[in-house]
């Protein structure tokens, strides 16, 4: 799961996958804006067939936050 998330983020941000880890901050380290996060979340929703509530998205600060949520809810 972690690798899939890292690959998706790497593709989106152009940051090499080896520079992304669980502690990478989506905004500070990967320089995503809040709208980027929304569109990536929409991709994850399609990929894993789940629905992620808006208030949950506000809690996504690091790659780990996304991973933990997807692991629990996929």
């Amino acid at each position: 799961m972690l690798q899939e998330i890292i690959d998706e983020l790497s593709q989106y941000t152009d940051v090499p996958p080896e520079q992304i880890n669980e502690d990478s901050n989506l905004i500070d380290d990967l320089e995503l804006n809040s709208f980027d996060v929304l569109t990536i979340v929409a991709d994850f929703e399609d990929q894993y067939g789940i629905s992620i509530p808006d208030e949950q998205i506000m809690e996504f600060h690091t790659v780990r936050d996304v991973e933990e949520f997807l692991e629990k809810n996929k």
Binding site: Q11, Y12, T13, D14, N33, S34, F35, D36, T39
Partner: peptide, 13 residues
């Protein structure tokens, strides 16, 4: 503009 920045990344992908 934030949406334009996101589109630019989407197009790059």
């Amino acid at each position: 503009p934030m949406i334009i920045e996101t589109f630019a990344k989407q197009f790059r992908n």
